[in-house]
């Protein structure tokens, strides 16, 4: 009874997450296209079979992996470089830090629009302007890279903050000891800083991947998944099948497959992170 006050929250959570999930599973076993009223009937696992037979689905799955891991890894590398710079003392550090964090605070839709129109537009985009009046149509020639650029831009500050916190928790006396022991700046970075940052890097990669695997806004705003499905990821592809193709059964089956795969990957990733932080906790 002590936990009774939590009950409304629990009921709410079940209503908004578990019931839709069960309904999705139910839909995924139906052949049901909204364009053909009255066509709804039970088909067992036919939808799942066609999901795995769908070469577009596989291509989109690959896009999702490239988009998620690529963006996260580039954001981590850039975030690490910026964190190393911000970890030094210089005049105006507070201002610089605030400015560097702002991309993370911008609504993803607004950020995506900013990239699509202000930066990447072939005629009046700033990137072409800086490149000396080029007219490269970035969004159609490099669709996946364009979406990833916006994602990296938004997620670098997050990685930077996380790694900056890690750098600032590094004991100064270890660095001093290493200097006396004859280590130069690079040796200190590889021998001390990187091992110290390991668990912060892991956490950043896992959290970033969990968020970015669900990316929708950027894809929708910048490329609409196109050309074709060149820049579509799984959430966008499912959306297309459900709300543009009106194929409820197919898209529900894809949704279930994606959720199950995500849960499996996320479980392993989170376990890794909690293990390294748990071990660190018992250290002190």
């Amino acid at each position: 009874m002590r936990r009774a006050p939590l009950l409304p929250a629990l009921v709410f959570t079940i209503v908004v997450t578990q019931i839709p999930f069960l309904l999705t599973i139910y839909y995924s076993l139906q052949s049901w296209n909204l364009v053909r009223p009255g066509s709804q009937h039970f088909v067992w696992f036919e939808n799942y079979v066609s999901v795995f037979a769908d070469s577009q689905f596989r291509g989109v799955a690959l896009n999702t992996i490239i988009m998620t891991l690529g963006s996260v890894i580039i954001a981590v590398i850039l975030g690490l470089l910026l964190a190393l710079l911000l970890n030094r003392h210089f005049i105006g550090r507070g201002v610089v830090r605030t400015l560097l964090v702002t991309p993370f605070l911008i609504t993803p839709v607004a950020a995506a629009l900013l990239w699509k129109t202000t930066l990447l537009d072939p005629t009046y985009g700033l990137i072409n302007f800086v490149l000396g009046g080029q007219t490269i149509d970035w969004v159609s020639e490099y669709p996946l890279a364009s979406v990833m650029a916006a994602l990296v831009w938004q997620w670098t500050p997050f990685m930077m903050l996380l790694l900056l916190a890690g750098l600032q928790s590094m004991p100064g006396d270890q660095v001093e000891a290493a200097r006396v022991d004859g280590a130069g700046a690079w040796a200190i970075f590889t021998e001390l800083t990187l091992p110290h940052l390991r668990r912060f890097l892991e956490l950043g990669i896992v959290l970033g991947a969990i968020y970015l695997v669900n990316t929708f806004d950027a894809v929708y705003m910048i490329t609409q998944g196109g050309p074709g499905t060149a820049s579509a990821n799984l959430p966008f592809y499912i959306y297309q099948r459900a709300f543009l193709g009106f194929d409820i059964g197919q898209s529900a089956a894809m949704g279930v497959v994606v959720v199950v795969l995500t849960i499996i990957v996320a479980t392993f990733a989170l376990r890794l992170v909690f293990r390294s932080f748990g071990a660190a906790g018992s250290e002190s």
Binding site: P171, D173, Q174, E176, A177, A178, R179, V180, D181, G182, A183, G184, E191, L192, P195, H196, R198, E283
Partner: peptide, 27 residues
């Protein structure tokens, strides 16, 4: 520091936590 040919023992010991005793001493 690294070129002064000195060795220092710190109050906090400042051991490298990610390295074994062997690697600490060999550093």
């Amino acid at each position: 520091s690294k070129d002064r040919d000195i060795a220092m023992v710190f109050q906090s010991y400042a051991l490298y936590p990610a390295k074994t005793v062997r690697d600490n001493m060999a550093f």
